[in-house]
Design a protein around this nucleic acid. Sequence first.
RNA 1: CGGGCCGUGGCGCAGCUUGGUAGCGCGCUUGACUGGGGGUCAAGAGGUCGCGAGUUCGAAUCUCGCCGGCCCGACCA
Length: 570
Amino acid sequence: MRWSESFIPTLRDDPADAEAASHKLLVRAGLIRQLMSGSYSILPLGQRVCRKITGVIRTELEGIGGQEFELPCLHPADVWKRSGRWDQVGDELFRLNDRRDADVCLGMTHEEIFTVLAGELRSYKQLPQIWFQFQSKFRDEPRPKSGLLRVREFVMKDSYSFDVDEAGLDHAFKLHFDAYRKIFEKIGLDALAVEASSGAMGGKESVEFMQASDAGEDFVASCEKCGYAANLEKATSELAAVDDGPGLEAPEKFPTPGVRTIEDLAQMEGGAAADRQIKTLVYIVGKETWLVLLRGDHTLNDQKLIDATGAFDLRPANEEEIRAALGASPGSLGAVGVTNHKVVADLALEGRSAMTTGANEDGFHLRGVSVERDMEIAGWSDLREVEAGEACPMCQNPLVVRKTIEIGHIFKLGTRYTELLDAKVLDQNGKNRPIVMGSYGIGIGRAMAAVVEAHHDEAGIAWPVTVAPFEVVVTVLNPKDVETSEAGEHIHDALRDAGIDVILDDRDERPGVKFKDSELVGIPYRITVGPKGLKNKKVELYRRRDGHQEELDLHRAAEIVTEYVAEERR
RNA sequence: CGGGCCGUGGCGCAGCUUGGUAGCGCGCUUGACUGGGGGUCAAGAGGUCGCGAGUUCGAAUCUCGCCGGCCCGACCA
């Protein structure tokens, strides 16, 4: 392949609207171009990388018995209505009408459609099955950002497992877990597997694969010592016990003029330390008003509340709603004596007494409150967000919190979809039972961006050989010099014939331009062919990853570099 | 959806406050020189100044509306 004939539109400057390193570099190196917010064209160089990534994934999935499909993007509303998601997912689903005015939508994933196909399975003898595809997904994200990291249209590898029972699902899940580890390792990512919330997906267990990066938007708590790791939406920690001391017979109201915050009350003479206060938050859950209780110094994690309530439309109440519900303004709220609203409390409040909380009367608080004695708690849940430095729930070592990119997510779905969409088989006893299902995803573009986040420097991208658009570039310094350009072509042809992905930079450009471009694009090996070296029958090898250089004999260069590449392909 | 910023040749930007011939760098075309880290010289091509209305003799510039993009937050399979 000749650079002079390729469409590789590199840019000297960073695009003005890019922030994340991967965004800047993918655009500058000519791999992608934006079409509109959250929608990108993949250019030839980017497509080559994506093809390598999908190749790695395909190999591993076929290795665990996966069979490849290709399903439609355009779905009838009917199946989404039957699974309940038509009403559940809201604005994130792209909905449209066809010419007969029928409701259709663009698939945001393919549980429904695969489940419809799984309806053709009749007997447990046909199980297990693992089905997968690479297909575009559409999600009308409220805020696309960071180039390929959060988009509205993207290709995803999604796979689905179908088993007779839970044990089968556990096995399929484990197969995927191991396959994912291999995939991410092979494409050059150092993915951390973490416990995650299943979100609106349903199901009871899920694991996310996270790549540490400043460009990420998820936070993960992990323990360096025992390996515990969880998304902050799920993470827990062990807290030091708080000594409440002797309490009171009954709550006692006291004036707290001007006190609006936990901090105010902690500072006030006769107030209470933050960890001796009860924080009262008001949420609108569906059509109901709920009170959410936390220790004063703790923060609510919204996803934990969503998981605990099982609600999908939930938001903080506004000032008027709070007044209407409790008769006081934020700053003096409490749950003592509240019976007309549902009250949920964080586990850290269990058994606590002699606490201070709002009196539902502006300017007054209650002290001497015992949580169980004085409040009607409808449910206890883990609701608070873990903070860095708190003790690991497994081994008490201090937890580390890191920003990460979610590059893969695997779910144990269970029978939600198969029951609603009627995908059942007869078991060994001739009894009809819903297939037990798992679902597993990897975003291809996001994975590519994550690799860039993990492998770049000031000069540009530094692809691992396994996903590089080209493994070797042969840079001809002076293409007008016949001897130089012929030498370059010979090396190029020899590498190509040896099965190496090689590109010949035969452009009539200054050497500096070609060096900069090859480093920006991030090709792992560069063989420089120039008149100076040729006088001694030498060419120069440059390794992008660490800048290592060595001189090679002209006639052995292709052979040696082929070996280097083969080694790194693994 | 709330807050902030921004739309001017392919890319990056100036011009707008104070209305009057649309500019710079890079890139692009042609030619010459040059040839181991984005070279030099010469001659060129390329712009409905996001869109629409208004004010004005005259609008990139002022006013209003709309559209689009980025960032923070909300949200997020």
